[in-house]
Design a protein around this nucleic acid. Structure first.
Length: 566
RNA sequence: UGCCCGGUGGUGUAAUUGGCAACACACUUGACUCUGGAUCAAGGAAGUCUAGGUUCGACUCCUAGCCGGGCAGCCA
């Protein structure tokens, strides 16, 4: 059965996405490779916050495990204690969980394998394919050669096995200072693949590790740890990004030398999103230099930023599915992310009316003290969400943008002498404009209403072009609204001058917004559609006495397009 | 100028593995509408980086180019 509801498409009941990785797995299954078992893993380094690019990888790895009745591990690649911190472990777990994935008991750490890795290293030394090298960092670089010239062999390359064993043990025991020695694989200094030119397996680092304390003063390099970690966990398909493609021969070499389980690495192109940056380094810079207010700033493409912005896990999963997986470089239009979000929110979110930039309207022919309770629909997409009552009275607020003194041709909203419908209320006509004599600013509008046009009365056949939202002035709750726009002004902010493209107007704070009173009970993270404006959620900073909403995403705005093009 | 990878509408991803290039977003137009939302309908847009070759037939296979990306951390 095919389910056409897009937000359900990430469920296992729906047709599976097709991509080259799944093709490979299908092929492996057909050939009975790995005894028809599928196991993946998501292997973050706990040195930063997860972003939407990681979400792609998470959805890929967990999604494949789900669809193939396999398993997906969460493994922290914590091989460098000088760069990693426990706080990141917690945030990563929270984000993966929030995205809707469950790694069960399979929470692993590369540091869990330090003993095993050490044993493996001894095996390679005994086999004569690993050696302790005394070259300094500079010397190692010199010996490595260049992209076009082969390297030179280290003078320490042919130490005896006994000496290597002894030295390596003493490295482990902390007898040598940082950087004085390394353990290297003995492969081929003239290999065209630089990764094969006797890569470093262990470095000396007298530094405590978050999980192993001060047990170790040698730490495995990523290249030495990663493949074996996958092997130890019996990962069948090690899915990673393109930059590790050149490392695959090395990983293959290690597991083959060791004669242990051989996972298959498959590389895919990382996600790039238009109008933002994705590298940890750049995101960190934005945070540290105060261009945003922290990692969870709603403008950030981090998972915690998107969450605070009001994104749903469903929308991110749907997005991840829609962008596909391939090996070519890509920049995904952020409009696709926004579309995925709207698709989800449109169906589930409560409608309400809120006026962001209020303009006072007085209905001259409406009784002074009268208050009518009118029926409003909570969600036209979902009848089950019911209706609510909203108060109507003589003094209202409408949106400043919904009035123009001199309207252009296609402007369907309010203007002098013209009519609009007030949503769920009456048709009104603008009969007067009051301006501040000094500034010329419009201060209030005088209108008349047509009692025959009450919403739902069915008595009036009259139709007007425009319908606008409003709130009754005496029945509002004030709020702050934070409007977010793209962080950068260019699609691809790359190069050294990337920071020059930061959008200075990426955040606009509106502090005198008038909301339907029911919103006073809104809880943090609650989501709403403010009719005709967009989707909004309650920010973490919000307090009952000081409501704060984030604009998650605008509604599609045909008028904005018309206005812009003319 | 070494090795590895990639090149299909504006963007992204497909193409039963050699059989009429499809889907989504974006864009345009129209219908409908008490959200200029949603929905629905229509449309423009690639002949698959180039040149050869194999074949009845090539996005797909072969050859040679061109263009883009990655790699010279005791980072991951």
């Amino acid at each position: 059965m095919i389910d056409n509801d897009p937000k359900e498409k990430s469920d296992s009941s729906s047709p599976k996405p097709t991509n080259f990785i799944r093709d490979i797995i299908d092929e492996d299954l057909k050939k009975n490779k790995y005894e028809r078992r599928v196991q993946t893993r998501f292997p973050p380094e706990p040195n930063g916050y997860l972003h939407i690019g990681h979400a792609k990888s998470i959805c890929l790895n967990f999604g494949i495990a789900r669809d193939y009745n396999g398993l997906c591990n969460l493994r922290f690649d914590d091989t460098n204690p000088s760069k990693e911190e426990v706080e990141y472990v917690d945030s990563i777990k929270e984000d993966v969980k929030w995205l809707g994935f469950d790694w069960g008991y399979r929470e692993y750490y590369a540091s869990d394998y330090f003993d095993q890795l050490y044993e493996y290293a001894i095996q390679l030394i005994k086999k004569g394919v690993a050696y302790v090298c005394d070259l300094t960092g500079d010397q190692i670089r010199e010996h490595r050669g260049t992209l076009t010239a082969p390297g030179k062999e280290s003078p320490y390359r042919n130490r005896s096995i006994e000496e290597n064993l002894d030295l390596f043990e003493r490295m482990k025991n902390g007898e040598f200072p940082d950087g004085s020695k390394t353990l290297r694989a003995k492969i081929d200094m003239s290999s065209p693949n630089i990764n094969m030119r006797d890569p470093i397996m262990y470095r000396i680092l007298h530094e405590a590790h978050d999980r192993t304390g001060d047990k170790w003063c040698i730490y495995p390099m990523y290249d030495w740890a990663h493949g074996q970690s996958d092997s130890i966990e019996k990962i069948t398909h090690s899915i990673c990004t393109l930059e590790f493609e050149d490392h695959r021969p090395l990983y293959d070499w290690f597991v083959d030398q060791l004669g242990i389980f051989h996972p298959q690495q498959i590389e895919f192109a990382r996600l790039n999103l238009s109008y933002t940056v994705m590298s940890k380094r750049r995101l960190l810079q934005l945070v540290e230099e105060g261009n945003v207010n922290g990692w969870d700033d709603p403008r950030m493409p981090t998972i915690c930023g998107l969450r605070r912005r009001g994104y749903t896990p469903e929308s991110i999963r749907y997005f991840a599915e829609r962008i596909g997986v391939a090996k070519r470089e890509n920049i995904i239009d952020v409009a696709l992310l926004e579309d995925s979000l709207r698709e989800d929110l449109n169906k589930r979110v409560l409608r309400t009316m809120a006026v962001l930039k209020p303009l006072k309207v007085i209905i001259d022919n409406y009784p002074d003290e009268k208050v009518e309770m009118l029926d409003a629909i909570n969600n036209p997409e979902d009848e089950k969400m019911g209706t609510r009552k909203i108060p109507f009275s003589k003094v209202l607020y409408i949106e400043q943008d919904d009035f123009m003194e001199e309207p252009p041709k296609k402007f369907f909203r309010l203007s002098p002498g013209n009519e609009v419908r007030l949503r769920y209320a009456y048709i009104i006509k603008c009969v007067g404009v009051v301006k501040n004599p000094a500034t010329g600013e419009i201060e209030e509008l005088h209108c008349t209403y047509d009692p025959e046009t009450k919403s739902g009365s069915g008595q009036s056949q009259r139709k007007v072009k425009g319908t606008i939202h409003w709130v009754s002035a005496a029945h509002t709750v004030n709020a702050e609204v934070r409007l977010y726009d793209r962080l950068f002004n260019v699609e691809n902010p790359s190069g050294d001058d990337w920071k020059n493209f930061i959008n200075p107007a990426s955040l606009t704070i509106l502090s005198n917004c008038k909301m339907e009173q029911s919103l006073i009970n809104a809880k943090k993270q609650d989501r709403f559609q403010f009719e005709r404006l967009g989707y909004f959620c309650v920010d973490y900073d919000s307090m009952p006495a000081n409501l704060i909403f984030n604009r998650t995403v605008t509604l599609k705005d045909t008028w904005a397009k018309i206005a812009k093009s003319s």
